[in-house]
Design a protein around this nucleic acid. Structure first.
Lengths: 232, 232
DNA sequence: CGGGATATTGATGCCGTTCAAAAACAGTGG
DNA sequence: CCACTGTTTTTGAACGGCATCAATATCCCG
């Protein structure tokens, strides 16, 4: 990015810290600013017609929050962990975009990628079993943690703190918290993951996790009843 | 849109007709062209790692097909009905975009809206019951049919031909074709929809359909067994 | 009318939910 | 450090919705 753009950006930027579980903006609010995530994890939350709230996405650094076009937010954003933001007043930011087409184009690409990710997720939610869904979500978090984590990690190994509670994981996946808990227990029993306490997750081999996430080999020849008298 | 842009666009445009069930492009193909849908309905189809194909979206006129950035398609597109396309060679089209920022911006907005729609759909698939899902899909198709249909329709009334088979509807919704069939039967029994033959759907009151689609009032006081000995 | 594809209907079983209880965890004050 | 309390997580048992397997019925088109 050319120096001039960076200068102009920093001239309108403001740093903002948000503590865990605090809202950044709410569904329906006027979109007064645009923000880049510098560190931490942000939950995207949608409020349905009937008033329930549901998690529809997670955003990590270095991604963006906010709509470029519509004047109101279409979902809420809340900090899942402590979050460090870099915010830009929306009007000034729009002006910059108009001035630097390359920047707008970059944002466009970012949005297009988001759309691809969302479509993949749709596919996932539609067809996968609960076991695969939990594995898929852990896989996604593990992969993103590898990028944002500072420690150089050996290949195929991941270790991270879950930014969500069981209840939130369940909500994201369209399951109940009990089911999520059972599937996590099963992943642990199978050796796919290890747990330190209840939030710290270790994935010894990401390849194994991704196999579990994609295919339907949950039972591996044995029915659940044969293993545990518990559902797969 | 200024006359110059339109001229330039038409100068590189080519008309293309596609018969029902014919592919327009395939997942992984090099993206050689960009297309506007002039009439008809297009299915977006994703191929999973395990090779199954699944419908992930429907596109109506006057929407767009094709990626502006990535060089390969991330999903397949096939005609659901007879489709009339207006195609543009991708390289010339990209050049035009660079030349007319307003056009690029318009496409950007379109993509952002697509993302919103996709997120709503994700929410839907995650939590709604089969009955609500079928109702939601019919509602979406009914609403879009109202726009594209030429006949001036009285408020709250819709009539349209389903562009998908039961099996395709089921695939889109992450259900089985049997379940979809049952739910459609139930919608008919409840008077929410009427059927002429098997594809032609009449929605006497779209408001009623949207109520069914959003809330969980499927039983309306009676369990299914009490009604039919059939599932909700 | 006939035959293949598509759609409806039926019966049964499994997966995820629901309701319920116990266990692990985190925070607080003694 | 430990007892105490509220919250989060795990585990258990039973129920219900959707899938699966199977049989009919209907549509479409020559």
């Amino acid at each position: 990015m050319p120096a001039e753009q960076i200068d102009r950006l920093t001239s309108i930027a403001r740093r903002r810290m948000v503590t865990a579980n605090q809202y950044i903006f709410r569904d329906g609010d006027e979109a007064v600013s645009f923000a880049a995530i510098l560190s931490g994890v942000v939950k995207l939350i949608k409020t349905t017609a009937s008033g329930e709230q549901h998690i529809i996405g997670l955003m990590y650094a270095p991604e963006f929050l906010g709509h470029t076009f519509s004047n109101n937010h279409r979902f809420s954003a809340a900090a899942a962990t402590e979050v460090e933001l870099c915010t830009f007043p929306r009007t000034s930011f729009s002006r910059l975009l108009a001035e630097f087409p390359a920047m707008e184009r970059w944002l466009f690409e970012f949005t297009a990628r988001e759309l691809d990710i969302c479509r993949d997720w749709t596919l996932m939610l539609g067809r996968k079993s609960s076991y695969e869904r939990v594995a898929s979500l852990l896989l996604m978090i593990a992969r993103r943690a590898r990028y944002t984590g500072c420690a150089p990690l050996p290949d195929n190994y991941a270790q991270f703190e879950l930014p969500l509670t069981r209840s939130e994981l369940a909500d994201y996946l369209g399951l109940t918290l009990e089911t999520v808990s059972r599937k996590i227990s099963r992943l642990k029993y199978k050796g796919v993951i290890e747990l330190r306490g209840t939030r710290e997750v270790i994935v010894p081999d990401i390849g194994v996790l991704s196999v579990v996430a994609n295919m339907d080999s949950c039972g591996e020849g044995l029915t659940d009843r044969q293993l545990f008298t518990q559902q797969s």
